[in-house]
Amino acid sequence: MSVYDFSAKTLQGKDVSLADYRGQVLLIVNTASKCGLTPQYEGLEALYKAHKERGLTILGFPCNQFGAQEPGTAEEIGGFCSLTYDVTFPMMAKIDVNGPTAHPLYAYLKKQQKGVLGTEGIKWNFTKFLIDRDGQVVERFAPTTKPEDLQAAVEALL
């Protein structure tokens, strides 16, 4: 099994198979527009622009489970990301990452790479999962890990 076995909807409501990203390095991030960590969008976009030609794709998954910090509609989220941070990497539809309604992709990611002290649950917005070109989950990064601190890990997989 790999991340390629899952699909998700884009912010525009289009179904996308993650198999479409086969052969690329993926960074999957749960995002929020009204969080103290929201400025990480800027670093994520810089990381994406620096490495997309070599095969990096970042997938943003808005989530409203942490302090209700992503209350907007798909249109509002897309507008915010585009206008405020010039986000050009793919943004997916809002999902849950924890609990019984967690998106199946996130249930898988959490089992593959546990968090601090071996816990599976996502603790906050901007938890990051790094996926290799074979669709395997390589590493999990804490919400406070800045995108620029991921350079070496990303480059090692490109």
Rank of each mutant, 00 (worst) to 15 (best):
E53L: 12
E75R: 02
G43W: 00
S82N: 14
A8Q: 09
K128A: 02
Q136L: 13
V138Q: 13
V97F: 06
D86P: 06
D15Q: 15
S17M: 03
F66E: 08
K128P: 03
S7M: 06
G13S: 07
M91E: 04
L109A: 11
P104C: 08
E76Q: 15
D96S: 14
P143W: 05
Q40T: 10
D15C: 04
G36N: 04
P90Q: 07
G135S: 12
D86M: 13
E139H: 14
V116I: 14
F141D: 01
N64G: 03
C81F: 01
M1W: 13
T119V: 14
R133G: 09
P143H: 04
G79Y: 05
T10A: 06
G13R: 11
L56K: 04
S17N: 08
L150M: 11
N64Y: 01
K49R: 14
S2Q: 08
V138N: 03
E139C: 07
Y85T: 05
E75Y: 05
H103R: 08
L130S: 06
L105V: 06
A68M: 12
A50L: 11
P147C: 07
R54Y: 08
V29K: 02
G99T: 13
Y48W: 00
L47Q: 01
T101E: 13
T144A: 15
E70W: 09
Q112N: 00
Y21Q: 05
Y21C: 02
S82Y: 10
I28H: 04
D134K: 15
Y41T: 06
D20T: 15
H103W: 02
S7C: 09
K94N: 03
Q65H: 03
L37I: 12
V116Y: 14
Y108E: 09
W124P: 07
P71L: 09
Y85E: 07
L117M: 13
T73A: 09
Q113P: 06
G79V: 01
H51K: 00
A19N: 13
K34R: 14
F66G: 04
A152S: 09
T119Y: 15
G60L: 00
D15T: 13
G135T: 09
L56N: 11
I77Q: 10
G135F: 11
L56Q: 03
Q24A: 06
A19W: 07
D20H: 14
